[in-house]
């Protein structure tokens, strides 16, 4: 694995809100840190139930969603968000450690499936930016 380059200037990100729905505290904190470093406005939810409430209230520009979580798992969370008029088209990055071999295809083109242990944080930021730019 090659060297890692520093975070560049992410001036355009400043108004973008990213909702992080992740139960694992250390992973959530890492995601929030890198989002802050990249000038995003991160919001945190520690399970699906909290995530749905925050998503529908704050209407973030993009959602990072874990799959295996207590209270409400990622699949149900995604269903609830997609059932909303606004939520039907919000970009969602499923960020999970569940083997993709078990993953059924996701709901629509606005949903992307990333394996956490295979993705660098900076690449996730790049992916977020690419999705937002599109």
């Amino acid at each position: 694995m090659g060297s890692i380059t520093g975070t560049g200037a992410h001036i355009m990100n400043i108004q973008k809100t990213i909702l992080v729905i992740e139960d694992e505290k250390s992973l959530r904190a890492a995601l929030v840190d890198i989002l802050l470093l990249s000038n995003f406005r991160p919001l945190e939810a520690k399970n699906g139930r909290e995530g749905v409430v925050m998503a529908l209230e704050a209407h973030p520009d993009l959602i990072l969603l874990d799959l295996i979580m207590p209270e409400m798992d990622g699949r149900v969370t995604l269903e609830k968000i997609r059932a909303d008029v606004w939520g039907a088209n919000v970009p969602v990055l499923i960020l999970t450690n569940l083997s993709a071999t078990n993953g059924q295809p996701m709901d629509n083109a606005m949903t992307h499936y990333l394996i956490k242990s295979d993705w660098k944080l900076h690449d996730i930021v790049q992916k977020i930016e690419d999705v937002l730019d599109a």
Binding site: I4, T7, S117, L121
Partner: peptide, 26 residues
């Protein structure tokens, strides 16, 4: 299989991400 993959990869992801941020000078 799915549980093992989840349980094993979660701490690995944590190490990965924090090491990555440290290495990047973040």
């Amino acid at each position: 299989v799915s549980l093992a993959s989840h349980q094993l990869r979660t701490p690995l992801s944590t190490v990965n991400w924090y090491a990555e941020m440290l290495l990047a000078g973040d």
